[in-house]
């Protein structure tokens, strides 16, 4: 297939996944900020949201203060932010249109419908209730697009590239949350177990839709190191780094099989998958959680570069 087509499919999935992630962050932040100060402390949750979304630099060029209004606008509706929910959906629609014939009717209907619907929200919500509805709608749109891709696409390179986009973006998102909040998850943190952190951990899990999953996996109350274990090493959790890499390796292998050759991207992905499989939480904490995550983010970006170089140019 054309490299441009593969590139469009890959980024189409990434944009939709990113929009959903932003909606989850905003949802979790809204909950945290609604709690009395005694439960969450004086930390600025809205600033934390901007950091987790990975767009602090751009944000502070435009605003002096990270408050609800500014952050909501910047992360959800701003056209100045190329990674806002709106920009993501618009970029996704643009990509979809350019590769219209590589999509199934259902995928097209889903992304095009989302794009048309987006106009209804105009330049922002008029109330908190409406904003909540908006965030739910974003998550549903992403689920619908993902589901239509999963259920209707021919299992060929087009499908594999679109899946790769989903998992590369997802791995990046989970790693970013960990990167910003890692200090909350350290086992030797002195405030462990306090009410302040409890709600923070719940928020982290909520932003990767893993709060219920946590209870099913550990059958225990929220413990920071278990939260880290779940998000990094548990194959069962669809948004864990480990699970994302299982899928990345699988899809890259499908491509290699169809094309009859392995390349740098396949080798690199397999290396990372093996490392995750061989890691234990104790070891990660000993070497430093922060270092581990920073390294992961760098490696994940390198893999993105390798995929681009091998297939998308």
């Amino acid at each position: 297939m054309l490299s441009r087509t593969a590139d469009n499919l890959y980024w189409l999935s990434r944009y939709v996944e990113r929009a959903e992630y932003l909606a989850r962050i905003l949802d979790a932040t809204q909950r945290l900020s609604a709690l009395p100060l005694a439960y969450v402390g004086a930390s600025n949750e809205w600033e934390s949201a901007v950091l987790t979304a990975g767009c602090a630099t751009g944000f502070f060029k435009l605003y002096d203060e990270a408050n609800e209004e500014n952050v909501t606008d910047y992360l959800a509706f701003s056209t100045a932010n190329s990674s806002s929910i709106r920009s993501c959906f618009e970029a996704a629609r643009h990509n979809a249109r350019a590769v219209r014939t590589a999509l199934t009717m259902e995928m097209w209907d889903s992304i095009n419908g989302t794009w048309l619907e987006l106009k209804r929200y105009g330049n922002g919500p008029t109330s908190r209730e409406e904003f909540s509805r908006f965030l739910r709608w974003v998550q549903e749109s992403s689920l619908r697009f993902d589901g239509s891709a999963y259920r209707t696409m021919l299992r060929s390179d087009a499908y594999w590239f679109s899946r790769l986009g989903v998992y590369m973006e997802r791995a990046d998102n989970t790693a970013r949350i960990l990167d910003v909040k890692y200090h909350l998850l350290l086992p030797d943190n002195e405030r462990v177990g306090g009410p302040l952190d409890y709600f923070q951990w719940a928020a982290i899990l909520r932003s990767v839709s893993a709060l219920t999953a946590y209870h099913w996996v550990y059958r225990d109350s929220l413990k920071p190191w278990l939260v880290a274990d779940l998000l990094i090493l548990k194959d069962e959790l669809p948004r864990s780094l480990s699970s994302c890499y299982e899928a990345i390796v699988r899809n890259l292998d499908q491509i290699a099989g169809a094309y009859g050759r392995q390349g740098a991207a396949q080798r690199q992905a397999r290396g990372m998958r093996t490392r995750l499989q061989n890691s234990k939480m104790d070891g990660i904490f000993q070497r430093g959680l922060h270092e581990f995550i920073s390294e992961f983010i760098t490696e994940n970006n390198r893999l993105g570069g390798a995929i681009t170089e091998q297939f998308l140019l």
Binding site: M1, L2, S3, R4, F161, I255, F311
Partner: peptide
């Protein structure tokens, strides 16, 4: 896009093609 789909051929833009040694190639995966 309708015709490319019906013909079963790639729908290319200028940037998908390049010329080397007087031969035209398309950039594929």
């Amino acid at each position: 896009s309708f015709l490319a789909d019906k013909l079963g051929v790639e729908l290319v833009e200028g940037r998908d093609l390049f010329v080397k040694d007087e031969v035209v190639y398309m950039r594929t995966t």
